[in-house]
Design a protein around this nucleic acid. Structure first.
Length: 487
RNA sequence: GACCCCUUCGUCUAACGGUUAGGACACAUCCCUUUCACGGAUGCGAUACGAGUUCGAUUCUCGUAGGGGUCGCCA
């Protein structure tokens, strides 16, 4: 197998030397088909084989689960890396779950992550409708095929599909060959007495109808796959190629369900995660992009994606690493992008962003200290208002030193007459005050910090002074100095 | 219970059958420093167990144990 891969890569590289990534991906695609359809001895390369059509088919449960999001992500990467189509189909045959809000959660989550679909709700496409609730007549037609083939029978008003009961070997793009012995499981119900169709049936029919070539889904479906293939063949269609990806578990190894930390994509939005970071983390859970850094963009992922490299074992969710990645991505933001990322959180805290250039400088002064965007207000609120609170610790610091008031007045006077407001001038000014007062320059810093921000941790003091500007700095210093006098 | 998937540091993972079993996160210590971070350095820490094949096994085979999944008139 490895040898075929090597030859295939060499051949496609020759054909299209300008697009090595596309070629590597194409080879992968070819090989996945090859695994299914060809014996090694008859292996031939088909570099211009039709691009894959994959789909993400969630049920509108009211939220987008990270496991589902990662399934969508791997499907999307597969399509994007091979120039194929990514289809979104809503499996809403269970009418109780079929609400507009439940649907929105899925659309919003996917869009937030940047997983755009080529066909599906709000995108159109020639194989619609993309809601199973609107496809009943199609299912009726396919049921008739099964009836004609003598593969169904009625059971108390429900309709069951007669299994062929043969042992099968399923070539899985990720797990390799999976063998299933002939089963004694009861035949599968495909339609309820009320006429509603069951998941397994509609899922298979839609994949046939929508020309889906590759089904990439959660490992929880491995055991259902032989049934789907059986159904597919009974309908006279060639089954798609399957690939089963491992599940995401809680840190303790249990199954991740709705209320668990990190389970809902909306939770990441609410916590101030960057979509790029969550995208990045999901890539790393179950797949190792062979890139120099673990910090990657979606473009990197598309370039590097190789479905055969997806792992076979379940992975536990690690919020600490996801948060670290968010910090890494946050650091890469500058100017406008940084302001827009922080804006909702600042406004939610009642802060007016105002001049974007000023806001950008304020945010950049702390961005390396922030892990999640929602932490921005806590670090920068004093840049955006004069009536900021003074924390207990800062007040104590100012009052503990009997010289505080005198030092602040001296600083205020010196800063008023500082020759400039750049870092060098500020350093010079502060140093000369320190010399005058016979103390170390470092001793002035906490006083300045407390006076200017009301807290004992924050941006570099001189950077903070630079952003605030001379007028605000002097007025804050004198205000604090006089407050100390009153108390 | 039957069937299927899986098993390397706490977590995510790397290692043509030959490596002092590598990296990232987390943790600890130190350096840098006005704070908090970033950055740098160091440390802690793993091949589930038992057989077999082999000169040699994390790697291949079998068994055991453990984890996960499927077996709906849910999706």
């Amino acid at each position: 197998m490895r040898e075929y891969m090597r030859i295939a890569k060499a051949q496609t590289a020759n054909q299209c030397p300008n697009h090595p990534a596309v070629n590597a991906a194409r080879v992968q695609f070819v090989l996945c088909n090859f695994r299914l359809s060809f014996h090694p001895s008859s292996f031939t390369l088909h570099p211009f084989m039709i691009p894959p059509r994959v789909r993400f088919a969630p049920s509108p449960t009211g939220y987008l689960h990270v496991g589902g999001a990662r399934t969508a992500l791997f499907n999307w990467l597969y399509a994007r890396s091979l120039g194929g189509q990514f289809i979104l189909r809503i499996e809403d045959t269970d009418e109780a779950r079929n609400t507009e809000a439940a649907m929105r959660a899925i659309f919003d989550g996917l869009r937030w992550l940047g997983l755009d679909w080529d066909e599906g709700p709000e995108a159109g496409g020639e194989y619609g409708p993309y809601f199973q609730s609107q496809r009943k007549s199609i299912y009726d037609t396919y049921l008739a095929k099964l009836e004609a083939a003598g593969r169904v029978y009625e059971d108390n008003g429900a309709i069951r599909f007669k299994f062929s009961r043969e042992s099968v070997t399923i070539p899985d793009m990720i797990c390799g060959d999976i063998k299933f012995a002939a089963t004694e499981e009861p035949d599968m119900t495909i339609r309820r007495p009320d006429g509603g169709y069951i998941f397994h049936f509609v899922n298979v029919v839609d994949d046939i109808e929508m020309r889906v070539t590759h089904v990439i889904r959660g490992e929880d479906h491995i055991s259902n796959t032989w049934k789907h293939i059986d159904l597919c063949r009974a309908l006279g269609a060639e089954p798609p190629v399957y690939g089963h990806i491992p599940l995401i578990l809680n840190p303790d190894g249990s199954k991740m369900s709705k209320r668990d930390e990190g389970a809902s994509v909306a939770g990441y939005m609410d916590a101030g995660f960057l979509p790029a970071a969550v995208f990045n983390y999901l890539c790393l859970l179950g797949w190792t992009p062979r890139l120099p850094s673990e910090i990657i963009t979606s473009e990197d992922a598309i370039q590097a994606f190789d479905i055969s490299e997806i792992h076979h074992s379940n992975a536990r969710f690690d919020m600490a690493k996801c948060t670290w990645l968010n910090q890494q991505h946050l650091r890469a933001l500058t100017g406008h992008a940084l302001v827009e990322q922080a804006r909702p959180w600042l406004e939610k805290s009642g802060l007016q962003v105002g001049d974007p250039a000023y806001a950008a400088r304020a945010l950049e002064s702390v961005k390396e200290k922030v892990s999640l965007a929602r932490e921005f207000p806590g670090w920068t609120h004093f840049f955006f208002r004069e009536d900021f609170p003074s924390e207990e610790e800062a007040t104590t610091k100012l009052k503990a030193n009997t010289q505080s008031q005198q030092l602040l007045y001296a600083l205020g006077d010196a800063l008023k007459n500082a020759p400039g407001w750049d870092e060098a001038s500020l350093t010079q000014t502060i140093n000369s005050v320190a010399t005058e007062q016979k103390i170390k320059p470092g001793a002035l810093m906490p006083l300045l910090r407390a006076s200017l921000s009301g807290q004992m941790r924050g941006p570099d003091v001189k950077v903070m002074m630079g952003v605030l500007g001379r007028d605000r700095v002097i007025s804050r210093i004198s205000r604090v100095a006089s407050t100390i006098a009153q108390s």
